[in-house]
Structures are given as C-alpha cells and as structure tokens.
C-alpha cells in the first residue's frame, strides 16, 4: 500500500481550518495576476468574512463531484495554495484539475509539480479515475512546461476564448490518461509494488 498518498517531497495535501484558509484566500486575491492565471471570472475582492462563510457553508456537505485540498509546505507547514478535482464524471472516470499557488515567492520552486503529482496519485489510485483534464491561458507559458513535466499532453486550444488587457487569448487544454501515468511511474521506479 501507498503510505504517502497525500505527502510528496516538498508539500502535503491537507484540510485547514476555515479561518486560516479565508485569511490567506482574501490576501492572495489582492494579487490580480494570480486571479487572472486562475480562471475566467473578472478579478474580484472578497473579505475574510465572505471567504469564511463560503468555506463554512461547504462543511459537512458531501459533494461527490469535487475533491479540494490545501497545499502545505513540508518544511515550514505554510499554507501556499490549493489543488482539487472537480466536475467528476464517475461513469466515465473523468475529472478536471485546478491548482493555485497564492504566494508569488513560491512560484517556480517545484511546489506546484509536487502537488500535481500527489493529485494524480489520488485521482488514479484512490478515486480510480481514468483521465484528468486541465486548461490554462495562452498568456501563462510556464504552465504548459510544468504540466508536461508531470505527464499531461496538449490536446488542443480553444481559440480566443478569453479577453484580457485588450487582447483575445487561447485556452489550452491538456489531458493525462491513467495507463500513461502508470507507465511513467513504472519507468521512474516510483510505483509501490
């Protein structure tokens, strides 16, 4: 059995207290670039109170289509972002992945890839899904390299799907299949017997 299902080399996936998360989410939101790398919605500002209420309203709810975690560093036990699976189609074994790292000092240090390896392991070995999809924006060129590193392949681009800073940009879609992921695990000697 896998002992470190939620623990990687740099980070672990945890479920933090709502007051801790809401404080960080509210602060991260002030970085509009973070928000614009994350999603389609116009950047917005939410108070700690509003975030806390939103998070608390989910407590105790069993949503079979979503699994979200907080990302915590192993070294300092710092909360640095979130990662999750959403839009799960159980009959087809599909889900979408979303990831956000709130502190820009933490970008480009391997935390995101480490968290992504954990969510792949969780999706394929715990939820027994078959494939994962993710999307990101053309103006985020670092994203593609980091997702390729953990095994995602580019599957196409939705042309000019987003308008930001007066320009239209493509949305790139990548996917990973469980058998391909398993092969890379075997190749890297990472799989547990």
């Amino acid at each position: 059995m896998i002992e470190s299902l939620l623990e990687g080399k740099l980070v672990r996936l945890v479920d933090e207290e709502p007051e801790v998360i809401s404080k960080e989410f509210s602060r991260w939101g002030r970085d509009s670039e973070y928000q614009r790398l994350l999603n389609f919605d116009p950047a917005f500002l939410w108070s700690e109170k509003k975030w806390k209420e939103a998070i608390e309203s989910e407590l105790g709810k069993d949503n079979p289509r979503e699994y979200f975690f907080n990302i915590q560093t192993l070294s300092e036990k710092r909360l640095i972002g979130f990662i999750g699976l959403m839009g799960i189609e159980w009959n087809h074994g599909n889900a979408w992945v979303a990831i956000g790292l709130g502190e820009r000092e933490d970008w480009g240090k391997g935390y995101g890839s480490d968290a992504m390896r954990l969510i792949l392991q969780y999706a394929f070995n715990e939820l027994n899904l078959y494939r994962l999809t993710l999307g990101f924006f053309e103006y985020n060129p670092r994203a593609q390299r980091s997702y390729e590193k953990v095994g995602f392949q580019l599957e196409g681009r939705q042309r000019q799907m987003v308008q930001r800073a007066g320009k239209r940009w493509d949305v790139l879609i990548m996917g990973i299949l469980q058998p391909d992921w398993q092969n890379t695990q075997l190749g890297a000697g990472l799989s547990n017997p």
Partner: peptide
C-alpha cells in the same frame, strides 16, 4: 472547427 480532442474521455 475542431479545437480540442479530449482523448478517451467517455466510456
């Protein structure tokens, strides 16, 4: 036009 092909996304 076809823009994206999500491989093997349905069973």
């Amino acid at each position: 036009s076809e823009e994206v092909r999500r491989r093997q996304a349905q069973n």
